[in-house]
């Protein structure tokens, strides 16, 4: 028995990978439908902030994530766009990451289809082109955004668009949200939120989420959506369950597997020690 237990402690990692694969695949094929009741406080704060914005306020959505982090961050972006447009807010989609353009195309294609079919491009939302040099862009956003964003991604002049009426810089906007898998949110907090006293919220990967605790505590960030769970929480709040929620079943089983493995290895260690 001692040998068996020692073998189990040094189990081939490929068996662990196989177990994880099965547990991730099964709920995708046959969803468990687990209820998502405990919503994150910071996600709720983001939701409430948007709810409290007056109608036709301008929301800047900076989508700065690349395809690798799509499963975690794209559902957040979709949920935020849905919420903002359905609240009759004006939405400006920006990006400082060249890899995000494809996913923005995705969202752009979906808005007239299912996200908000009654909204009109140029009147209710606008999509700006990718711009390099984030620091320069952020500095300009606080002074006169038309110095950089004089045209939208299709080459149309932005200054006279109805969606941009009365908006010259972040000071004329209601909220900024940066969704990123990199440190772009830190830059936004330093160069935009703090500098121009502009309310910012964020959407980040689950692994980066704990690092933003200091910003939330000082009020530099009004809210934070973290990982796929955050996306699922937001979808629950806006009552429109989608990819974020559908991934929660798989996430749940994977977490339980990790706990079972950790507990098992420690129990085996204890047994071997006192055997």
């Amino acid at each position: 028995m001692k040998n068996a237990l020692e073998k189990f402690l040094k189990i081939d990692r490929r068996l662990i990978f196989l177990a994880l694969t099965v547990l991730l695949f099964a709920p995708i094929v046959r969803p468990l439908g687990l209820p998502n009741k405990n919503l994150g406080k910071d996600v709720v704060n983001t939701y409430n902030y948007i709810e409290a914005l007056p109608e036709r306020s301008f929301v800047m959505l900076s989508l700065d994530y690349d395809p690798a982090t799509r499963p975690e961050l794209h559902p957040q972006a979709v949920a935020l766009v849905k919420h903002a447009l359905r609240r009759n807010l004006r939405v400006g989609i920006f990006t400082l990451n060249a890899g995000a353009t494809g996913m923005i195309e995705d969202i752009a294609a979906r808005i007239p289809k299912d996200i908000a079919p009654d909204k009109v491009y140029g009147r209710d939302y606008v999509i700006m082109p990718f711009q390099p040099n984030p620091v320069a862009v952020m500095t300009q956003l606080g002074i006169n955004l038309y110095e950089i964003y004089d045209k939208d991604r299709n080459g149309n002049p932005t200054k006279d668009m109805e969606v941009m009426k009365g908006v010259k810089s972040v000071k004329d906007m209601g909220l900024g949200i940066c969704i990123t898998g990199t440190a772009m949110l830190d830059y936004y907090v330093a160069y935009v939120a703090d500098k121009y006293k502009f309310p910012m919220a964020g959407g980040v990967t689950a692994v980066s989420q704990p690092g933003y605790g200091p910003y939330l505590q000082t009020g530099q960030l009004k809210g934070l959506i973290g990982g796929m769970k955050g996306a699922a929480d937001y979808e629950t709040l806006i009552n429109d369950l989608e990819k974020g929620t559908s991934g929660i079943d798989a996430l749940s089983l994977a977490h339980v597997l990790v706990i079972v493995l950790i507990l098992t290895s420690n129990i085996i260690m204890l047994v071997l020690k006192y055997l």
Binding site: L34, K37, N38, L251, H255, I262
Partner: peptide, 19 residues
Amino acid sequence: LFAAAFMVILGRVPLGQMM
């Protein structure tokens, strides 16, 4: 470390919260 990790892993997902 184990105790903190255990609680965070458990509490981040609905199934863990139910448990």
